[in-house]
Design a binder for these strands. Structure first.
Lengths: 360, 360
DNA sequence: GCGATGACAGCAAGCGCTTTCTATCGGATA
DNA sequence: TATCCGATAGAAAGCGCTTGCTGTCATCGC
């Protein structure tokens, strides 16, 4: 039924071995032979059997990308960037190193993260890129560590992108290479953002945090608190002005109302990310408050739509595409890992129209 | 080095066949035996070898999803929805039918589309979901048809989501099942949108079209023209008020300026999609024109951020998630294909703040 | 009480490719 | 001229799993 290597070999009057070598281009084959083989491939419309090939070669050309939510542009951008580096499909054989991206939607769920990793391990994935913040549950962290160590040991390259470094696996002798890490400076970015607000004169600043138990949530919140503490605003007092939610618009909407209820005199609200910030703006508009005249709003990430909000959102820019592209290169072994295996990706403050002096 | 089926078998004191059957759950195995096997699997921390399994079983648990641009929420939402139906990873063996999603970013390029299809064919993908409009090049269409027919014949289920039906493969006897199709009513949606504008009293309406040579672009433009023609506005005159661009914000920005240059008296601009519409709004704001007081703007798709634009965008809602989820179910064979293999997904007009009467 | 019938379990033959090792052949070397 | 070597090509042994076909008992019907 389907055409196999052997069929091509027969047609080209060579051995299967030779066909394989032509397709993989990793062994000298006389030009004339190669051409004959290629012609046969063409004529028979032959397509390599991936599983068979992977089995025999003990490698596959799949690269896993774990994301929390692929419908969120934050992850979409990263997934696209990784793929742009691993992808460019072209050519026949497994030559050239082009890989297929397997995008895994974890929904931020611990067990799904683990199961997907197992699935990728089963596929003998060439590499795995983990994006987004990590869950802070120690048990889960340990399980992840162990799993990643196993993957690494099996030859899968592991890269963390926008995720903090992990502790080495439990007490094992650390012979295998540690995952490469590209960590986002969430804390520094958040600090600078709040400093900007403070510099404008704001002193009553609400904060809409992300879901608890995530490193991203924690880091951004800590950066925020750091800035507040630096001007003498007590953390304890701030706690009342912090509301946790999800990374969604609706969450921002609800949180804004709640914050205003807790302190109607708020002059600024910082959101966990841009999507949430948009929800905050919507709630404010709903309540007849103008942004930024009555109240300033700031986001985080600088997703493409942020500049189009009205007013344009003050936020912190994370170079998602660039970082993820680099992660892709690391995953492909096209780029040397950073010294120490860890690099920090800077976050840049973007001041735009949604923040202004209070009572402005 | 790695644990194999045989190791598990030895440990559980059964044959490899039995282990395989326990893992796949497709053959009766005594409860006590099963338990013994499962324990061994656990103790040895065994992970099935996917490629080997796929080779032997001649199937794989990969599902391909072709998208133009995964960083665009339009596609992100669909990819996520498909995955939500095929995904839910759980359990050991290949039981339960959980599949891994392979997201392929074609960038809207013909040859990449084809190559990805070949790659998926090579992986013996269980199913392939193609999203987004199709290229109109007849040669490419024929090539795609042929490729899809090959995939179908090889047992891969093919589903088109948000893409028009394809002509059957060139003259071949149509024995194999045709792809299931979920087509978006782009034309009808566009028509209703422009009718809405006309009903408000607009007569000078600019149109920012998508890239030429795509069915989506054509359908939406045709719907628009249809509505105009219905009130007696000549198509020829309208051509001057149509600008083509990409599906990007920048494209909308530039196009708006161009349209205004061509006709400064424009009272409304319809954009190919929401992202473009946002760019249009930005350009308008830049030029000191208020939306909707001076000029109305409308988009298409109703992506999540559209409701948060200021003013909220009038647009046409496409039930992306629902449609793609259905596509996922079709791909999994969990749902019967629509009668005739083709279903049309309705597009709903969403009137919001960005459109108003002219000189309003 | 005996063959028929199930319910399980094992054997062994692949699935289609990669890769090591070996064979061949036309020079280049001495 | 005999030997050696580089450049190619082939033979064949798997890679780890699935599955059709065979047993092997224990139970069942009459």
């Amino acid at each position: 039924m389907t055409v196999t290597l052997a069929d091509v070999a027969a047609r080209a009057r060579v051995s299967p071995a030779t066909v394989s070598r032509v397709l993989n281009g990793n062994y000298p084959v006389a030009a004339s032979t190669r051409e004959r083989v290629l012609r046969a491939v063409d004529e028979l419309d032959y397509v390599l059997n991936g599983p068979a090939s992977s089995l025999a070669a003990a490698t596959s050309d799949l690269v896993g990308i774990l994301v929390n939510d692929i419908s969120d542009p934050f992850f979409g951008i990263m997934a696209g960037a990784v793929q742009s580096e691993i992808g460019g499909p072209e050519g026949m054989g497994r030559a050239g190193g082009e890989k297929l991206a397997v995008v895994c939607n974890t929904g931020g769920l611990a067990e799904r993260e683990l199961t997907y990793l197992t699935l990728l391990q089963r596929q003998r994935a060439a590499a795995v890129v983990l994006t987004g913040g990590a869950l802070e549950d120690p048990e889960h962290t340990a399980a992840m560590s162990a799993k990643l160590a196993k993957l690494t040991r099996a030859g899968t390259r592991v890269v963390l992108c926008g995720r903090p470094p992990m502790p080495g696996p439990d007490g094992a002798a650390d012979d295998h290479p540690a995952p490469a890490v590209l960590a986002f400076d969430n804390r520094g970015g958040a600090r600078r953002l709040t400093e900007h607000l403070l510099a404008l004169g704001h002193r009553r600043v609400g904060y809409v945090a992300g879901p608890p138990g995530r490193t991203t949530t924690r880091d951004r919140l800590e950066g925020h608190r750091e800035a507040l503490a630096a001007v003498g605003l007590a953390t304890s007092a701030q706690e009342r002005l912090t509301v946790h939610g999800t990374y969604s618009r609706g969450s921002g909407f609800d949180a804004a109302r709640e914050l205003l209820r807790r302190d109607p005199e708020l002059t600024a609200i910082v959101a966990a990310n841009d999507t949430v910030a948009l929800g905050v703006c919507a709630a404010l508009r709903d309540q007849g408050r103008r942004v930024p005249e009555d109240i300033s709003v700031a986001g985080f990430d600088d997703l493409p739509f942020s500049v189009d909000a009205a007013p344009a959102l003050t936020t912190v820019r994370l170079p998602l595409f660039e970082a993820a592209a680099r992660a892709g290169r690391l995953a492909m072994g096209k780029e040397a890992p950073p010294p120490g295996g860890i690099a920090t990706v800077e976050a840049e403050l973007m001041v735009r129209g949604s923040t202004a002096r209070p009572n402005g």
